[in-house]
Amino acid sequence: MLGLSAACVAPESGTTATGTAPEGSSAASSAAGHKRIAFFGFARANSFASATWSGIEEYAKANDAEAEFFDPNFDAQTQVQQIQDAVTSKRFDVFIVQANDGAAVVPAVKQALAAGITVVAEFTPVGTRYDTAESQVPGMITLIDVPVDNGRVLGELGVAACESKKLDPCEVAYLEGFKSLPLDNARTDAVVQALSAGTGVTVAAQVEGGYTKESGRKAMQDVLQSHPGVDVVIGSSQAIAGAEAVLKGKDVLLIGNGSSRQAVRAVQEGRWFATYYLPEKTAGAKAAELGLAKARGQNVAASTSSTALGPNGGKGTKDALAGVQGEYDE
């Protein structure tokens, strides 16, 4: 996925990149010198968060810093508690927060900032707005993929796919993420709005496709029962991988929301029309760069959209992804 679509990693709730920080060391250490980063990712077993962590860890090791992964295993309240405990420990200079629930972590983020810790929101917004890359908590740095912009790009890719088939009308099915998530609902609204702006484009079906191959496979089977002539299907990269298996032999263009090596390869091989592409390991390194620079007293941009890090504004068409490999595995 992107979104909570995504990807990921491995085991305990705190693995240190270059050793364990001494107990009682303070985040209010001198601006220069060795720094400590705490990464609060989606889950240690998630390949997308794993790619983020890889970028953070490598950048930290190369820039006189060490990093530690705190694993909430997709549990929002566990993540909040981990952030609060890390503030209390006074062991860290920088927090990088990949929020499972952007609204839930706001009080803990404010607590960290009040304690003098530099905080970077990475990939998901921290706050309740899904239409802006701007910081929603004063003093926090943001490096996020704006959900509404993500949805708009997916919809625009859907329109382009319809235009490539020269169909009017053109039936599009959207396999949305989770209807229970405000972030996913904001993305869905943006997808539908962008598709509706296309000439002759019809949103034939909206079903919950989730973020696994199995959920995508089932969703696609449901769509075909009521819309056997669908022309274009959009969904998380995992869901589209499942849908692809159901659609074998059918002339349907597929668009994924995710930038794994598998999704990139599917576009390059012509099996998928496009995928939404962000270089997530690169984003992890950038988050570490921003956080360490600010913790060392340098001026940094308060907000950055993740799409600025990749080609073509996230529109991963075959031409845009020429020579790209992707930075994580599903």
Results as ranks from 00 to 15, higher is better:
Met1Thr: 13
Gly3Glu: 11
Leu4Pro: 13
Ser5Asn: 13
Ala6Trp: 05
Ala7Asp: 14
Ala7Val: 10
Ala7Arg: 08
Ala7Gln: 08
Val9Glu: 14
Ala10Cys: 06
Pro11Thr: 10
Pro11Cys: 09
Ser13Met: 08
Gly19Thr: 03
Ala21Ile: 10
Ala21Thr: 09
Ala28Ile: 05
His34Pro: 12
Lys35Cys: 09
Trp53Thr: 06
Ala62Met: 00
Phe69Ile: 11
Phe70Val: 04
Asp71Gly: 00
Asn73Gly: 01
Phe74Ser: 13
Phe74Asp: 14
Phe74Asn: 14
Ala76Ile: 09
Thr78Ala: 15
Val80Cys: 02
Ile83His: 05
Thr88Trp: 05
Asp93Val: 03
Gln98Phe: 05
Val106Ala: 00
Gln111Asp: 14
Ala115Asn: 06
Phe123Asn: 15
Thr132Cys: 02
Gly139Leu: 06
Ile144Arg: 02
Val148Met: 13
Leu154Lys: 09
Glu156His: 03
Leu157Phe: 10
Ala161Gln: 07
Lys165Ser: 11
Lys165Tyr: 08
Leu167Gln: 12
Lys179Cys: 08
Leu183Trp: 05
Asp184Trp: 05
Asp189Gln: 14
Gln193Ile: 03
Ala205His: 09
Gln206Asp: 12
Gly209Gln: 08
Gly210Ala: 01
Gly210Asp: 00
Gln221Ile: 09
Pro228His: 00
Ile234Pro: 00
Ala239Val: 08
Ala245Thr: 15
Lys248Asn: 02
Leu254Ser: 05
Ile255Asn: 11
Gly256Ser: 04
Gly258Gln: 04
Gly258Val: 01
Ser259Tyr: 04
Ser260Cys: 05
Arg261Ala: 14
Gln262Leu: 12
Val267Glu: 07
Arg271Asn: 11
Thr275Lys: 09
Glu280Met: 12
Lys281Asn: 02
Ala287Arg: 04
Ala288Ile: 03
Ala293Asp: 15
Val300Met: 06
Ala301Lys: 14
Ala301Arg: 13
Ala308Met: 06
Gly310Arg: 08
Lys318Glu: 11
Ala322Tyr: 07
Ala322Leu: 03
Gly323Asp: 04
Gly326Lys: 10
Glu327Gly: 01
Tyr328Val: 02
Asp329Lys: 08
